[in-house]
Amino acid sequence: MGSARFSEKVEVGNQNPKAGTEFNTGTPKAAPGDAEMTDDMEIIRSSGNIFRDLGHPYADREQLRALLAAKIIGVLDDRKLTVRAAHEVTGVAAADFSRIRKANLGRFTIDRLMTILSSLGQEVDILVHVHPRVTAIRSDLDP
């Protein structure tokens, strides 16, 4: 395919849809009730797990499912497989690959995602480290 071609030159600015090709090049103004932007910003260090940072009750499980799904997507992309082609290769429903691509992982267990990776010819190794959480869930459980 060739590059896109335009029959007229477009000027920089905010186009006014009611006026056709007229442009509003004035300074943008805040709408009533809009918050004013400031340079003040608080930086918070991530735990490395976005689900934990957002307070998800099953953060570790969701993180693992997201990582496995990302690996599946990576294999599909590397092999340039469509969801239908992936179905032909693995026998897994094309709709399931579509759900994985859209990060709609509610229907998938960790075991199922690992099985899909295996059916794509991938070997999955899981390394587990168990240690106390930094923040205690219940202080009355401490000895």
Rank of each mutant, 00 (worst) to 15 (best):
A86T: 01
A86M: 04
A86R: 00
A86D: 01
H87D: 14
H87V: 01
H87C: 10
H87I: 01
E88G: 06
E88F: 13
E88Y: 07
V89F: 04
V89G: 01
V89H: 08
V89L: 07
V89Y: 05
V89M: 12
T90F: 05
T90K: 10
T90Q: 09
T90H: 05
T90M: 07
G91E: 11
V92T: 12
V92K: 07
V92I: 13
A93Q: 10
A93H: 06
A93W: 01
A94F: 05
A94E: 06
A94W: 06
A95W: 08
A95N: 11
D96G: 03
F97K: 10
F97S: 12
F97Y: 14
F97C: 12
S98R: 06
S98H: 04
S98D: 08
S98W: 02
S98A: 10
R99P: 01
R99F: 07
R99M: 14
I100L: 02
I100C: 03
I100F: 03
I100W: 05
I100Q: 02
I100S: 02
R101T: 06
R101F: 03
R101C: 11
R101Y: 02
R101N: 13
R101G: 06
K102C: 06
K102G: 03
K102N: 14
K102T: 10
K102I: 01
A103M: 14
A103S: 11
A103D: 13
A103Y: 11
A103L: 10
N104S: 15
N104M: 10
N104I: 08
N104Y: 08
L105M: 06
L105K: 00
L105T: 03
G106D: 14
G106K: 13
G106L: 06
G106E: 10
R107W: 04
R107N: 10
F108N: 09
F108Q: 04
T109S: 12
T109D: 01
T109L: 01
T109N: 00
T109H: 00
I110L: 14
I110G: 04
I110E: 15
I110S: 07
D111I: 15
R112E: 11
R112N: 03
R112A: 01
R112V: 00
R112F: 14
R112S: 02
R112G: 03
L113R: 08
L113N: 06
L113T: 08
L113C: 12
L113S: 03
M114T: 05
M114A: 15
M114G: 08
T115Y: 02
T115A: 13
L117A: 03
S118R: 12
S119M: 12
S119W: 08
S119A: 14
L120A: 03
L120M: 07
L120K: 00
G121E: 05
G121A: 04
G121T: 04
G121I: 00
G121F: 06
Q122M: 14
E123S: 15
E123G: 10
E123W: 03
E123A: 07
E123R: 15
E123Q: 09
E123T: 12
E123H: 04
V124I: 15
V124C: 05
V124L: 07
V124F: 09
V124S: 15
V124Q: 05
V124N: 09
D125L: 13
D125C: 02
D125V: 12
D125Y: 09
D125W: 03
I126C: 06
L127H: 12
L127T: 13
L127F: 09
V128T: 13
V128S: 13
H129F: 09
H129K: 13
H129E: 09
H129N: 11
